[in-house]
Design a protein around this nucleic acid. Sequence first.
RNA 1: GUCCCUAUCGUCUAGCCUGGCCCAGGACACCGGCCUUUCACGCCGGCGACGGGGGUUCGAAUCCCCCUGGGGACGCCA
Length: 464
Amino acid sequence: MSDLRVRFAPSPTGFLHIGGARTALFNYLLARKEKGVFILRIEDTDVARSTRESTEAILQAMEWLGLSCDEGPYYQSQRRELHIAKIEQLLREKKAYRCYCTPEDLEARREDALKAGRKPKYDGTCRELEEPIPNSPFVIRFRAPREGATSFDDRIKGPISFQNEELDDVILQRTDGTPTYNFVVVVDDAEMGVNLVIRGDDHINNTPRQILMYEALGYPVPEFAHVPMILGADKARLSKRHGATSVMAYKEMGYLPEAMVNYLVRLGWSYGDQEIFTMEELIDKFSLENVGRSAGVFNPEKLLWLNAHYIKTGDPERLAGLLREFLSARDITTDEGPELTEVVKTLQERARTLVEMAEGAEFYYLEEIHPDPAAAAKFLSDKKPVFESLIRHLKQISQWNEVSVESAFSSLMEESGLKLGKIGPSVRVALTGVTTSPGIYEVITVLGRDKTLSRLEKAIESLS
RNA sequence: GUCCCUAUCGUCUAGCCUGGCCCAGGACACCGGCCUUUCACGCCGGCGACGGGGGUUCGAAUCCCCCUGGGGACGCCA
């Protein structure tokens, strides 16, 4: 048992995306490994943009990935009183001040500064104001030191240092009285005892300001670990135009959570040459030391490969349960017809996603097979006698299994002098309607005696 | 523009801290072959990288400096 306390703090302004999921995963893994505490906190300070649906979606995605928290979810919006009290404390201690500059003013000054080649930071107009201006809207700013430097030793990136003159007086409280993220995150992390902040490296620039606030508030400063960003194929920040970025979109595309977890963890972290990890192994082996420092490109191809791997090696029973959903999305019910678990077994090696598996499983449950015309023309035209013999041989089978099906074919081949290449593809078209499927013996075995025979007879009828 | 981070195959990465075992290893993708009743799986093989320039050293992917490239931040968003 360690005293490690980490947290994942998403803002509910959209779905859980790839990058956020990885950050959550790293937090989770380290907490489990160190036997620390993993806290989930919803950062809904921006009431206008935060939605309940997003919160739900994020929670669902976390659950799907198997990332359970030990504390929370906490909601930042429910901690308003605490935040306001802390702002008042800073005001009293003159570590914060009221600023009456309007957004328009600020925007104009920012543009001027940018044009003049200066850093577009707040110029401190209201910093030395002695008295409050009555009846005027204001924000509350942090009075940051203008000299010296603020440094920290990042657990992933190493020592990082900022000159304080680069920092500006951040807004703590908006005109409407609500506190802002940069302040609230400090108060909440401190009050929740978070002692290691693992987050995206787009927060590095916020870190010195936050450290200054920890100090002003009299809190101990936590450690920081900034994980690199995830980029798209064009090396730009990952966004929708690079394809699906929502974790749950992958669930819908037939991906398994363990594939997603495995992919995400290897994007930025490694353990020698090992590629495949179970969650248990990850908890055992994960460490911040082996997290890379540079941004990585999201590679859907490798995710697909991992998914194929987990489908191939997954428990057929479980896969069947998941597959049912994808089948019913295609209006296929599995109440009648072959045992779905057996169907899954025939498809595990050739489906990379559950969507592909559903496509491949469809023919087992169809009421009637309507062969693809081109395939029918090529493989069915002169097969009536062969099918008739096959039916005869199949009917002699007493124990319907793959071995006996195969021996029925052997007899047929011996009797007719035909090679399997002359028979198999035609039977496949007759039974499945298409030219690609699992092995023909497997198909016949799983499809069952009745359906096999009736489909062959249907095919013969259509030939007469 | 300023500041911060970063830099090994197309991509994810091992190696870098503790220089020589690295004319750089693995994985995805790609190409070729084998297997084969289809499609896949699998197996075997191939292509392919230390961004550039200076140092330090007997010796540098590994240490130092500069340049360049890439990313991020500069919000009354988080």
